[in-house]
Amino acid sequence: MPMKIGYARVSSTGQNETAQVDILTRNGAEQVFIDKASGTSRDGRPKLAEAIRYARKGDALVITRLDRLARSVPDLHAIAQELQAKGVDLIVTEQKIDTSTSMGRLMFNMLGAIAEFETDLRKERQLDGIAKAKDEGRYKGRPVTVDGDAIRAAIAAGDKPMAVAKRFNVARSTVYRMKAEAMLDDAAIAP
């Protein structure tokens, strides 16, 4: 007999999933999987993977809103294709989407595109705000946490990049970048 499987996600451990779980159970979810993680990617969301594995042909994955499942159209489509390949429908309670119907599939695709558009707009507004704050002298960027002079001195002394990275607790890419910058500076100074 087909089963409704609920999936809830909150972005952090400080948030509460109770409201989502209540909606899912009122909509017939017999088993609910809960992640406390960012929705920007599927990485770090083991309960989503478990819910998809648990679902069988004819079942439905029930969520409250599309943004609880994914934050990008490609990720949303990848999840939808995985569900479709298994013969599992997707039901979104608050947005009245049921992919077992053609209208539901259309709404699913449209809302996914709108969600990605909103995320892009939010990023653009953030970048605009940072640019404005820089122009007004209110934004100086993140404080420097790397002792560049000490790293350059260690490189000049012939220390290996891996050793320098470990000693200063930085990524090797930082060491290589500083090494390249030092080489460019040396080339600019040389006659």
Score class of each variant (00 low, 15 high):
residue 2 P to H: 05
residue 5 I to A: 12
residue 6 G to Y: 02
residue 8 A to Y: 03
residue 9 R to I: 07
residue 9 R to N: 07
residue 10 V to W: 02
residue 10 V to I: 14
residue 12 S to I: 13
residue 13 T to C: 09
residue 15 Q to L: 11
residue 18 T to R: 07
residue 18 T to F: 02
residue 19 A to E: 05
residue 21 V to D: 10
residue 22 D to S: 13
residue 22 D to I: 11
residue 25 T to M: 08
residue 25 T to I: 03
residue 26 R to K: 10
residue 30 E to Y: 03
residue 32 V to I: 14
residue 35 D to E: 03
residue 35 D to W: 00
residue 35 D to V: 07
residue 38 S to M: 08
residue 38 S to N: 04
residue 40 T to S: 10
residue 41 S to D: 05
residue 44 G to Y: 00
residue 44 G to T: 05
residue 44 G to V: 09
residue 46 P to N: 05
residue 47 K to C: 11
residue 47 K to M: 11
residue 50 E to M: 07
residue 50 E to N: 05
residue 52 I to W: 04
residue 52 I to L: 13
residue 56 R to D: 06
residue 56 R to I: 12
residue 58 G to E: 06
residue 60 A to V: 03
residue 61 L to I: 04
residue 61 L to Y: 00
residue 68 R to V: 02
residue 69 L to C: 10
residue 74 P to L: 05
residue 77 H to I: 10
residue 77 H to N: 06
residue 78 A to P: 15
residue 79 I to G: 01
residue 81 Q to Y: 01
residue 83 L to H: 03
residue 84 Q to P: 11
residue 84 Q to M: 08
residue 91 I to Y: 00
residue 95 Q to A: 14
residue 96 K to S: 12
residue 97 I to K: 05
residue 98 D to T: 06
residue 100 S to Y: 11
residue 101 T to G: 15
residue 101 T to P: 12
residue 102 S to M: 04
residue 103 M to R: 14
residue 104 G to W: 00
residue 105 R to G: 09
residue 105 R to C: 12
residue 110 M to V: 08
residue 111 L to T: 01
residue 112 G to V: 07
residue 118 E to T: 10
residue 119 T to P: 15
residue 119 T to F: 02
residue 120 D to A: 04
residue 120 D to Y: 00
residue 120 D to R: 02
residue 122 R to L: 14
residue 123 K to V: 04
residue 123 K to C: 13
residue 128 D to W: 00
residue 129 G to S: 03
residue 129 G to H: 00
residue 132 K to Q: 12
residue 133 A to D: 02
residue 137 G to C: 13
residue 138 R to P: 05
residue 140 K to T: 05
residue 140 K to S: 13
residue 140 K to H: 06
residue 142 R to T: 04
residue 142 R to Q: 06
residue 142 R to G: 15
residue 148 G to Q: 09
residue 149 D to N: 04
residue 150 A to Q: 05
residue 152 R to F: 06
residue 153 A to C: 10
residue 155 I to V: 04
residue 159 D to I: 10
residue 160 K to W: 01
residue 161 P to K: 11
residue 168 F to Y: 01
residue 172 R to H: 03
residue 173 S to V: 02
residue 173 S to Y: 00
residue 176 Y to E: 15
residue 176 Y to W: 06
residue 177 R to I: 07
residue 177 R to E: 14
residue 180 A to V: 15
residue 180 A to I: 14
residue 182 A to P: 15
residue 185 D to T: 01
residue 186 D to V: 12
residue 186 D to T: 09
residue 187 A to Y: 01
residue 188 A to S: 12
residue 189 I to W: 00
residue 190 A to L: 07
